[in-house]
């Protein structure tokens, strides 16, 4: 089955390839194959597939990655806006949320 993709050109992911040491950590943690490392440098190859989970930025030892992360959940954002509180969470354990 083909892989689903969300809106285009909205993702805040950024990579400063000059800082990269080629450790491949970003490749290992990303659940959507957004990165590739070739010739010792990371490259963003599938930006629109990024779900802004923040795993790559958190696990990059060189701080080469930046992303405004958060859970992309309409109900959560809405209840946050309405009640000025934290969003939901605690769904079933299939890797999903909210």
């Amino acid at each position: 089955m083909r892989e689903m993709i969300y809106l285009k050109n909205v993702v805040t992911l950024q990579l400063d390839a000059d800082k990269c040491n080629g450790c491949r950590m970003c490749v290992k943690v990303c659940p959507h194959e957004v990165f590739e490392v070739s010739k010792g440098r990371a490259k963003i190859i599938r930006k629109d597939y990024c779900m802004e989970c923040g795993a790559c930025a958190l696990n990059c030892p060189e701080d080469a990655i930046e992303v405004r992360s958060g859970v992309g959940c309409a109900a959560g954002i809405l209840s946050g806006m309405l009640n000025n509180t934290e969003a939901c969470c605690g769904g079933p354990d299939s890797g999903a949320c909210c």
Partner: peptide
């Protein structure tokens, strides 16, 4: 249906905000 974005595993926060 929009609320299902929370359960999906490929929607980004920026995207959902724009969509909303």
């Amino acid at each position: 249906a929009m609320n299902f974005t929370g359960s999906s595993t490929f929607t980004s926060l920026s995207g959902v905000k724009i969509e909303m």
